[in-house]
Design a protein around this nucleic acid. Structure first.
Lengths: 128, 128
DNA sequence: AGCAAAAATGAGAATAATTATCATTTTTTA
DNA sequence: TAAAAAATGATAATTATTCTCATTTTTGCT
């Protein structure tokens, strides 16, 4: 794999946020750095970064894929109303059990997401 | 919500398998029972069954949504090569920690998926 | 049973995320 | 510095899912 400024930009944009963004958000951020970057290039590079293990996909069951440059084992929360995704802290017994389980069943990794209506959406629901 | 044979068929088709199928598989199975059923009807009913809590979506980060009529708390394994999804047994400490965590953070539920190349795909990789 | 309102349907059009194509440009290596 | 390999941008193609709407089915009521 050769060097490309586009790929480096995709990665640095993703590293700059904790928002678990979708490809189109990453695309629009990359355009601020490389105005003529193509959407397909962003998708291509995200795919390659995932294949390289430098980025993970966060499956939250929505229309768009979410990406994360934090590849350390960690868990997510997701709001089923607005689709927001955040990092979720878990207890250390749970963290340990997950690690043990993962080693036991020889998995390459895991994805743990808790579903919960976020504060913003709860507030909006309360208004109506 | 009114009764519909189509919705009942969608649910019974989904209950008949442990394969965590996608909408198009469910559609083709439903056609064996109701030959003129429409694809949109299957999607509509899946969505309603999810809203009712009779069915869950299984987010595994692939192109198609997967559905599951087993709504008890349980975990999944997924093959990143062929996309197969299966139920994965976990240790009881892990199960307990998950339950505790979920109650602690007031989540509506969680999704835990382990990623691992399945036996079939491993065998195929070995051949080449 | 008969009838009106509400809900559901099937067909197909529309939407939208992602992937593929391909001629051109950039990077690497020798 | 020239050739080979990889990457790019533009855009077409693909495909899963949602929307529209005229018709049919279900339901609650008399």
């Amino acid at each position: 794999m050769n060097y490309s400024r586009q790929r480096e930009t995709v990665l640095s944009v993703l590293k700059s946020t904790k928002d678990h963004p979708s490809a189109d958000w990453i695309y629009s951020e990359c355009k601020k750095v490389i105005p003529n970057i193509g959407l397909a290039t962003v998708y291509r590079n995200l795919e390659q970064l995932v294949a390289q293990g430098k980025v993970i996909k966060v499956p939250v069951g929505q229309d768009r894929e979410r990406y994360d440059a934090d590849i350390s084992p960690h868990c997510h929360g997701a709001c089923p109303v607005c689709g927001k995704v955040w990092d979720e802290d878990i207890s250390s017994p749970l963290r340990d059990s997950l690690k043990t389980e993962c080693e036991k069943n020889h998995s390459d990794g895991y994805s743990l997401t808790f579903f919960r209506v976020c504060g913003d959406c709860k507030a909006k629901q309360g208004q109506q």
